[in-house]
Design a protein around this nucleic acid. Structure first.
Lengths: 106, 106
DNA sequence: CGTGTAAGGAATTCTGACACG
DNA sequence: CGTGTAAGGAATTCTGACACG
């Protein structure tokens, strides 16, 4: 339990300079995509942005979409469509668990 | 290929301040364990230390060992003993691949 | 031996804004 | 709309050293 739960992919621990190197994007671009609500880094107590590896993967996709002429608004919607299934998956899992337990109650 | 190879566990992208928060160790302690050759962070072009999640796991173990009264020299040897098997595992995997390919050549 | 701290400097990050198109 | 840049300030990190034990 604790922070050692899932993989390290979702842990927000990388600062913007490193993200810039890893993605090839400028810090300006990275901050702008946050302003457009395409990514949601966390902040340290003193306000410094922290990103996860998942954020980095998302940023790379954002860059690709922009190159293809897709606007940030479209990209945002696309990203939402993908995150929804994840939530639904969790819901389905919960439902399955419920049914599973129900089986035994019968 | 590239940096997206294995998991994110080995990517050195976390700066010392974050590592300090994640491990509960002081920056002084973290730098000292490096001096004693227990961990090997990478450095940015400007000399800033970068750690991986694996480094963080190692640091936690180091802290535990020290609490138990084990000295840094002992801990270093113990850490070496563990890393060797990892290299051997890679070797074994290579060997298996060789045998696998041999199968088809017969 | 392992860790704290003050010291001075260098590198990083932040925000709001002007600019171009 | 997406991105570059100069501006000033705040936060981070680095090294070498003195200290305690």
């Amino acid at each position: 339990m604790g922070w050692n739960d899932g993989s390290y992919k979702d842990k927000k621990v990388i600062s913007i300079g490193t993200v810039s190197e890893l993605t090839g994007l400028s810090e300006r671009q990275i901050r702008y995509y946050e302003e457009r609500k395409l990514i949601y880094p966390e902040r340290s107590k003193t306000g410094i942005r922290k990103y996860s590896f998942l954020d980095i993967e998302t940023l790379i996709e954002i860059a690709n979409q922009l190159e293809e002429g897709v606007g940030t608004n479209e990209i945002r919607k696309e990203l939402k469509r993908r995150e929804q299934p994840l939530t639904n998956k969790e819901v389905r899992n919960s439902l399955l668990k419920g049914q599973f337990n129900a089986q035994f109650k019968v």
